[in-house]
Write a protein that binds this DNA or RNA. Structure first.
Lengths: 200, 200
DNA sequence: CATGACAAACCGACCGGTTGGTATTATTCT
DNA sequence: AGAATAATACCAACCGGTCGGTTTGTCATG
């Protein structure tokens, strides 16, 4: 194995171990030692790849942002009507949520640290703005194609994102309380039905 | 000043200092020493009133829960119609939000620690359930009085709470990004208008 | 004078980060 | 080609400092 490959492998194993531990136990409680132990890597290797513990955190956050963009890019090429597309999104929510598992927990960690670390705050705000923009474009498209009748697409986009974030939040905080997958599906279809009506 | 009064005073000053520091810097980063310094209290006094640092946290959380119940209690006695009541709630959101200031930040701390500490998790879940119940009752009342036409009040309550939580989350994460006070007001009135329609 | 309310010194554990050194791979020179 | 050199990847011991919590002692109050 070449040096470059080996290096990338340890780097990504550090990242993976850190993500898991951050999501499971929280950023502050997770020690660099424990990350190294979980990644089967020495402390020297850790500080060879990252300047600090915080740097791993923001690297993870930016990885999230990139994944986000990739998802948006694939959705933007869709040719279905907006309500159909939202329905498809909603039906895939369940699978995504179940698949990712505890991975979502790290979102709370990002948000909590967003108040303290300006770099994290900036990335978090950027994430929110991208989502708002995505939903605004989506609703705008729905209005253009005549499938939606929202008076204020900007406001509606904020509401839409709020519902998504609120469901996500409740789902992570109270995973056993309800069947959040099907609930999200029904909630989104209800929202769509409301926005398809002529009284908004 | 009697001993009892003096004791309660230091206790509440510890609580206040802890709340401020937890909200400002986060639970883990806040040291017991710094709390004591901010509260002008010795470490001995701290551990005289609380068995541990974590105990202060859950005490704070339960204080929030109680305040919540008090707010619900005052709202339940209202005689206005549901849309009117929601409008009143919405218009007061701005003031409450501005008044509380950074105090909301501790909510993120509660939620983040909810995954780690079972006691915190239970209180958080209880909080969610109380809110869901409150909104369900509210919407149910609206349907009975004929001002709302929601097919599934339970689902609608979840959506309603999601919007509130989502707006709150966005507002705390990106306080300067938008005028969240008026935005929340418009969002809630939009939701009410949708639910007043006959196509839900 | 007994007790509750505090004060201050103290403790072991642990944490993020550093350092000096080694092993392996890549590059250059003859 | 092969020796010499440079560079990278990695390791394990270690350090100053901080943390949550304890202990011992003081002192006003009831």
């Amino acid at each position: 194995m070449t040096q470059e490959e080996r290096s990338q492998e340890t780097r990504s194993s550090i990242l993976a171990a850190a993500e898991h531990s951050f999501a499971e136990r929280g950023y502050d409680v997770t020690s660099v030692d424990s990350i190294c132990r979980a990644a089967c890597v020495s402390k020297g290797a850790f500080y060879h790849h990252f300047p600090s513990k915080g740097a791993v955190f923001v690297a993870l956050l930016n990885e999230w942002l990139n994944d986000l963009d990739a998802q948006f890019a694939t959705m933007r090429t869709s040719t279905a009507s907006v309500p159909q597309e939202v329905a498809a999104m909603a039906s895939s929510v369940d699978g995504i949520y179940r698949l990712a598992g505890a991975k979502w927990n790290i979102l709370l960690e990002f948000w909590a640290k967003s108040k303290v670390d300006p770099a994290v705050a900036q990335s978090t705000i950027e994430m929110i703005h991208r989502y708002q923009g995505f939903f605004r474009e989506l609703l705008e498209r729905g209005r253009r194609e005549g499938s939606l009748h929202v008076a204020d697409t900007d406001l509606a986009a904020v509401v839409f994102l709020s519902v998504v974030l609120g469901l996500l939040l409740q789902g992570t905080l109270d995973p056993e309380g309800r069947d959040w997958g099907t609930l999200a599906q029904r909630a989104l279809s209800m929202l769509m039905a409301m926005m398809a009506g002529r009284n908004t």
